[in-house]
Design a protein around this nucleic acid. Structure first.
Length: 298
DNA sequence: CGTTGAACCTGTTTGC
DNA sequence: TGCAAACAGGTTCAAC
């Protein structure tokens, strides 16, 4: 479900809805998606949510130091709750009398009486309580923020790699936050085939691709994300960006530019939608038979 | 380095 | 109608 625009939507909703609230109690259901469930129960109660930020597809709930803490106590220092929504995760506040949805796995009672609940049918999400130093270690492997990356860095990260552009866009150590929908949408707009190799892209192409990617992400954020089946923001509202999809999910439908039927192929192990005419497939280099003219004593 | 396929889970859609 | 297969916005890991 959630890629950068959807996570940004949820994070902004939570920023409005729960910043300043203190967590009073934590109740856990299934915990196999939580790094260290006991750490949540031990460290979250008493903390105030100071901010909700997005980092790639992660949300970071910044937490105050434990109330009335001994400043010498490192356990009580400011920390973060890191949340990844996986495919079906959601984090939103509810009135306590509202019955919990099926697959609710975390309840955080807040000091205004509401409950911040995490639901996730597939449990592909992740949750972890991280102190300052461990948080930094968790964030270092990730690549550039797509909305901030410079033209030069973007070109360098893509053109230095021989992998398929689709795989590179999805690789969170190259860029953080791009997923299957927005990869296809930006490639369609840039007229680049998903199987094209990074090394084969011209500077002009990476320039256009970065622009299209940023444009798509910004417009999607403005539409509160894409709701294909079940994505809801923190207010329970679906996004609307799916109305603007040009490639994703449009197999057999006419290309918005040239009316050619959009094709679905598997690239980087994922469904990939592209226009066979506007996004010409890379020429497959015939495997030229190795010459047998090597010197025998070589 | 890069690719593929399977695995992790549950729910929904598609096809026969 | 019924049942099984295919598929889903994510990530990770082994094997090649």
């Amino acid at each position: 479900m959630p890629e950068l625009p959807e996570v940004e939507t949820v994070a902004r909703g939570l920023q409005r809805a729960v910043v300043g609230r203190r967590i009073l109690t934590v109740t856990l259901g299934k915990t196999d998606f939580i790094d260290d469930p006991a750490a949540l129960e031990r460290h979250l109660p008493g903390r105030r949510i100071e901010a909700v930020e997005r980092y790639g597809k992660f949300m970071l709930l910044r937490l105050s130091e434990a109330s009335g803490a001994d400043p010498e106590n490192r356990e009580a220092a400011p920390a973060s709750l890191m949340v990844h929504l996986g495919m079906t995760g959601n984090l939103a506040p509810y009135a306590p009398e509202q019955p919990a949805a099926k697959h609710t796995h975390v309840w955080m009672r807040l000091d205004d009486g509401r409950e911040l609940r995490y639901t996730d049918p597939r449990r592909f999400g992740r949750m972890a309580y991280l102190s300052g130093e461990t948080l930094a270690a968790h964030l270092t492997p990730f690549g550039a923020e797509p909305l901030q990356v410079s033209e030069e860095e973007f070109a360098e990260r893509i053109r230095s790699r021989n992998a398929r552009i689709k795989a590179l866009l999805l690789d969170q150590t190259v860029l953080r936050g791009v997923g299957n929908i927005y990869a296809d949408e930006s490639l369609w707009r840039a007229k680049i085939h998903p199987a094209q190799r990074g090394t084969k892209l011209s500077e002009a192409q990476t320039r256009v691709l970065r622009r299209m990617l940023q444009q798509v992400l910004e417009k999607a954020i403005a539409s509160r994300g894409s709701s294909i089946s079940d994505f809801l923001d923190a207010d329970g509202e679906p996004g609307e960006y799916q109305q603007h999809h040009r490639a994703y999910g449009r197999e057999g439908k006419p290309c918005y530019r040239c009316r050619t039927a959009i094709r679905r192929t598997i690239v980087a192990g994922r469904s990939s939608f592209s226009c066979p005419k506007c996004q010409p497939a890379p020429r497959v280099r015939k495997h030229t038979a190795k010459r047998v003219t090597r010197s025998r004593n070589g």
